[in-house]
Design a protein around this nucleic acid. Structure first.
Length: 235
DNA sequence: GCGACAG
DNA sequence: ATCTTGTCGC
């Protein structure tokens, strides 16, 4: 996909025009298209996506990594850089980051059967966090893995890895608060699309390998922001 | 009206 | 998200 055609290709992701009210209205429409039904089949390839910024925010850098679902070994990684076209507005994150994410995902060597996104799924004021928005756009099963709560509340969570309690909002369960590692801040996991509330945290926990973040998101995160071992593309 | 607010 | 070194704790 030509590095800036996400808008033309997806009517559900219009270019930013400063109209917050209509963007929110669109989210309400798209949220009605979200499915919380599991696919039934086990994923063979799982992708992880995350976004970082360069040049003081002028450049949006999206990273997509593809992993073998069985071994969690990396199969491919893509970095896409696009000029930033919108400011960060709580609740409208997907409109700002998805254009770059779609380009990165489209350049992967193979399409994933599931995508883990750094951000929320349906655990959002209008039920359409970035993972849910991406799922509705592409039709791919997606799960939101956030590092903090946007909306909702929950009971106390045990300190041991694997502990999981429901995240509720307006009397509804919208996700899970999951302890992915002993004594670290929990992850906020919510279905994005075509994944159930029950399976989302199970899948995410199964993707954790001793770090707080599950491998798909952790590897994408490492390339999107920090400079760690293997983060340099040249030399 | 006041505070909260993914990344 | 990003600006940023060393440091406290498991």
């Amino acid at each position: 996909m030509p590095a800036a055609d996400a808008h033309a290709r997806y009517p559900e992701l219009p270019p930013w025009d400063g109209d917050v009210a209509s963007a929110r209205a669109l989210q309400v429409e798209l949220a009605a298209r979200v499915s919380l039904q599991d696919t039934g089949s086990e994923p063979r390839r799982i992708a992880g996506v995350d976004v970082g910024f360069e040049e003081g925010g002028a450049i949006t850098r999206a990273v997509a990594v593809l992993l073998d679902a069985a071994t969690l070994d990396p199969l491919d990684e893509v970095v896409a850089r696009l000029p930033t076209r919108m400011p960060y507005i709580p609740g409208l994150l997907s409109f700002r980051e998805l254009p770059a994410v779609l380009v990165a995902l489209g350049r992967l060597a193979a399409s994933p059967d599931l995508v883990l996104v750094d951000g929320h799924g349906i655990a959002h004021p209008r039920g359409l966090g970035i993972a849910a928005h991406l799922g509705v756009l592409t039709g791919l099963p997606t799960i939101g893995v956030a590092k903090s709560i946007l909306v909702g509340s929950h009971d106390e969570l045990p300190a041991q890895r694997g502990a999981c309690v429901p995240l509720r909002h307006r009397g509804r369960v919208i996700g899970s608060v999951l302890r992915s590692k002993d004594k670290v801040r929990p992850l906020i996991v919510s279905p994005g699309h075509r994944v159930s509330l029950v399976r989302a945290p199970q899948i995410v926990l199964a993707c954790c390998r001793g770090y707080r973040l599950p491998e798909p998101t952790r590897l994408a995160d490492r390339l999107a922001s920090r400079r760690g071992p293997g983060a340099c593309s040249d030399e």
